[in-house]
């Protein structure tokens, strides 16, 4: 187990380094820079600004300097905001995004497989159809449409649901719901097909032949086996969740990390782009690692240790 963990951590570091380098290269190869926006800026002022942010040095030098700062945990100053450093922004934005992300993840994890299981148990009857319609809607309707629909029809008509913004738990309800729909749908569909497969297995017949109740068969025998493949896609689901969060945050006006991510690219705010990208990369890598470990812990057929039983 330890050896495996070490190997994964090492791979994670390499991955993150690759993300840093590739983003750096891509970022600087896109035309434009952070200061051309105000096209009226005189050349001298422009050069002033370039110098201030170290953009006048050769790229390779900028890269080394930047790597050095990263290792010390300093993501640098934002080029657009004179008020906060990138670290400030991440520190402020991340808990907000994490809150909504976790809320959405919980909704998806709890209701997705449940929906899928219900569909499988009532195959081709109306609970199945309804569940699958919900799933298809969740997967096909883009989250920004869902978000806009929620605002227009739910937030406007239900007084205690705020229309966008942030500040209380009520503010997080609609955005997490909109964000949760796609992962919920993915998990539901996956769970449904997994359940159907499991329900057709011989050991389910064995379980039934022991005379245990249907509920027990479903919960203890079927679900337990059906959930395994679903756990394996949690990693992908989580990544989709993160990507979806940018759009949702923009629509609902949530002051999270996602908003920075998008505006920083438009502004060519290099340090912020790098900071948010690296941060997300770290989160993803960690999440995938957690999911993999969880999967191994849950499935007894996968050996973790050398000493077999």
């Amino acid at each position: 187990m330890k050896k495996y963990l070490l190997k994964r951590v090492a791979m994670a570091i390499v991955t993150i380094w690759a993300v840093i380098t590739i983003t750096f290269i891509l970022m600087h190869s896109v035309p434009g820079d952070p200061f051309r926006q105000e096209s009226k800026m005189p050349k001298v002022v422009y050069e002033n600004l370039l110098r201030k942010y170290g953009l006048d040095r050769p790229l390779s030098e900028q890269y080394i300097i930047y790597l050095g700062k990263i290792i010390r945990g300093d993501f640098g100053d934002s080029m657009k905001s004179r008020v906060e450093t990138v670290n400030d922004m991440i520190r402020r934005g991340f808990p907000v995004s994490a809150f909504i992300g976790l809320e959405a993840l919980l909704i998806a994890i709890i209701f997705g497989p449940a929906l899928g299981a219900i569909a499988a148990l009532n195959q081709n009857k109306w609970p199945d159809y309804i569940s699958m319609i919900i799933a298809i809607i969740g997967v096909s309707v883009p989250s920004f449409i869902m978000g806009t629909v929620f605002i227009q029809f739910l937030a406007r008509n239900i007084s205690w649901l705020p229309i966008g913004g942030w500040g209380s738990f009520a503010h997080s309800i609609l955005p997490s719901l909109a964000l949760a729909l796609m992962p919920l749908a993915q998990l539901a569909r996956y769970m449904r097909s997994s359940m159907l497969e499991v329900l057709g297995q011989d050991y389910i017949k064995t379980a039934k032949s022991k005379g245990i109740s249907n509920a027990t068969v479903v919960l203890r025998h079927a679900v337990r086996n059906a959930i395994l493949p679903v756990v394996s896609i949690l990693g992908t689901v989580a990544t989709n969740l993160i990507a979806g969060s940018f759009v949702i945050e923009k629509i609902f006006g949530i002051p999270g990390l996602g908003m920075f991510f998008i505006t920083s690219i438009n502004n060519r705010d290099y340090p912020l782009i790098m900071g948010t990208t690296i941060f997300y990369a770290i989160i993803l890598v960690v999440m995938l690692l957690i999911v993999d470990i969880a999967y191994m812990l849950i499935d007894p057929r996968i050996k973790l240790t050398k000493e077999g039983r």
Binding site: Y203, G211, R220, N225, D299
Partner: peptide, 21 residues
């Protein structure tokens, strides 16, 4: 009655037992 008064043994032992239990 099942598993109690009448029991069954199935054909394929490789798939008849719950792999995660």
């Amino acid at each position: 009655i099942r598993g109690n008064k009448i029991s069954m043994v199935f054909q394929d032992p490789m798939t008849s037992l719950n792999p995660t239990m």
